[in-house]
């Protein structure tokens, strides 16, 4: 075991994992996170706490993770390289471990231009692949990036993102391979709506043997309305929503129910794709739906290890 987290145990034992996502509030209320943790407690193995997602200032991921953990739910701390340099990243990694957080997800982060402080200086001292590499070094060699010794153990289960829907498509699996080479343990992908493209990506990944080296969790984002589907198709970077989905929502009497049905069908297809070891549900404010989705997807109860 690298960190001995619940997520690690589930994935390493070959079980199908379920993770979800919760965004900290634009404020100081611990109760917001506690409520989300409560909703997600029984239906997933770990919850990602986002790090100033879409470059909008929120309560820190580290604080959100601590609150989640105190609520009895295992957190995955998201870490973007947009807001912190190598000193701050390493400092927060040490602090997270001291506070009992074992899963950390390495991300570039959406560009600050999209957020609520578009005039901010983006840090980007190191990139997400270098962050993976740095964490592996911290864990396996007990050394900082500069080679100095770290006192104490650094148990981290290292995660990263992958986007099979970005371009150039042919390069996407090579980029995944690069993350594996850097030392990533698990991957959570961007939301899957285009299943054939995702299956093609996974085939390429399996052909390279990557499914044997890393646990890949397919991302899903439940669709609440036709407007949301259109918005994601048109404005959310790195997400593609096929026209069939838009058409189905257009024709549906109750778009909200149809949206859930669509995602459940996608999950069914995803489960059959070789190399997929779990799903990652990003409910983006609609955490109430997660437990119903996991139940209906036949993934309840969650294993207790």
């Amino acid at each position: 075991m690298k960190a001995g987290t619940n997520l690690e145990k589930i994935l390493e034992s070959g079980r199908f994992a379920v993770t979800a996502e919760a965004g900290p509030p634009k404020g100081t209320s611990a109760a917001v996170i506690q409520r989300k943790a409560e909703l997600l407690r029984h239906c997933c193995d770990a919850v990602n706490i986002t790090d100033n997602q879409t470059a909008i200032v929120r309560m820190s991921s580290l604080a959100g993770c601590v609150i989640t953990k105190q609520a009895g739910v295992e957190p995955v701390m998201q870490m973007v390289v947009r807001d912190r340099n190598r000193l701050a990243l390493q400092a927060d990694i040490l602090g997270a471990i001291a506070l009992g957080i074992g899963n950390i997800l390495c991300l570039s982060g959406d560009h600050q231009k999209f957020g609520n402080h578009p005039q901010a200086k983006g840090v980007f001292d190191i990139d997400s692949i270098q962050l993976i590499q740095m964490m592996k070094k911290m864990r396996d060699e007990k050394k900082f990036l500069n080679g100095e010794e770290i006192s104490g153990d650094v148990p981290i289960y290292i995660g990263a993102a992958a986007n099979p829907f970005a371009d150039p498509f042919e390069y996407r699996v090579k980029r995944l391979a690069k993350k594996v080479k850097a030392g990533v343990d698990f991957i959570q992908t961007q939301a899957v709506y285009d299943v054939p493209r995702f299956a093609k990506y996974m085939k390429m990944a399996c052909d390279m043997g990557l499914d044997k080296k890393v646990h890949i969790l397919a991302g899903v984002i439940p669709i609440k309305s036709l407007g949301m589907a259109r918005y994601m198709r048109d404005y959310v970077s790195g997400v593609t929503v096929p026209d069939e989905i838009i058409d189905r929502l257009k024709g549906a009497e109750k778009a909200k129910e149809e949206g859930v049905n669509i995602i459940l069908e996608i999950i069914e297809q995803i489960k059959e794709i070789p190399g997929i070891h779990g799903i990652h549900i990003m409910a983006v404010g609609w955490e109430d739906i997660v437990s119903e989705m996991v139940e209906r997807a036949g993934l309840m109860p969650r294993p207790v290890l």
């Binding site: 570039s108 999209f114 790195g238």
Partner: peptide, 18 residues
């Protein structure tokens, strides 16, 4: 836009930056 050293981020689409 993110001064990445190791290839395109997930925001690269149709040859354009996010």
């Amino acid at each position: 836009a993110k001064s990445l050293f190791n290839g395109p981020c997930g925001g690269s689409s149709d040859g354009k930056c996010e």
